[in-house]
Design a protein around this nucleic acid. Sequence first.
DNA 1: AGCGGAACCTGTCGGC
DNA 2: TGCCGACAGGTTCCGC
Length: 281
Amino acid sequence: MPELPEVETVVVELRSQCLERRLSAAQLQRQDILKRPQGSTDEFAKFFVDHSFKSIERAGKYIIFTLDNNDRLLAHLGMTGKFVVSTNGAEQPDHLCSQYVFADGGRLDHVDVRRFGRLELYRSGKPIDRLDRLGIDPLSDVFNSDSLKTLVYSRNGRSRRQRAVHTLLLDQSLVSGVGNIYASEALFRAGIRPSRAGGKLKPADLERLCEGLCGVMQDALKYGGTTVNDFRRVDDKPGSFKDMLCVYGRTDESCRACGTKIKKIRLGGRSVYFCPKCQPR
DNA sequence: AGCGGAACCTGTCGGC
DNA sequence: TGCCGACAGGTTCCGC
């Protein structure tokens, strides 16, 4: 389940392996993965052939591949999506969604078992509107406890939000890149109960939450992300942050800080984990 | 506008 | 042993 640290890990590795290599073929194996289809499979190939990737960037959980003609491929990995660099002679992997063949004999495989991921093609100059709707990135330098106030106040700024702070953290238009794992982990670090209403957070809470979010993202990045079930790096190795998780997936195990049993609840249709003693309210 | 819940998708796991 | 339902969750959509 790729969240910010996993996507960032993938982007850094893709950048080191895929830039400036001429593409000789591209195929879309799963039509339904391409949102707003831009025509036939042939046109998908034409979009890439004889071009190369000029830059690869991350925005929230999205990956933006920019070609040398400034056309762009926007990719979202969903839950189980991955990009794997391989050689053209290698066997075709299961659940292949799209594939990019380099003229030098290399290959980039895009695999997604559950097909929650999406691809979109944008011609040069066409704005990617959905990126404008993303909230603040926890790794950016404008992220601070002040910008986290988006969690507390409604858009018109006149009322306070009633939703659970955990649910608010998952809203990509408020904070971008946070998913279920790091929402639970950040709230543990901040000592805040996930079910607490966002509007009831005090300035000191936002301060700790800011530190918790930044900290957990940076730490996870150092370990190459978290592999719970499916996530793989570009070299198909798992990330190793799983061993560092304090609450996520640790139901009935004891808290690393105080020994209390970790509790699991449901919020907004998601499983949420917390320590009742370290996160009193 | 804010909010909750369903739907999408398939592999895995626990219970019977 | 085998079947079946529950579960995993990022995003979008729908209805209140």
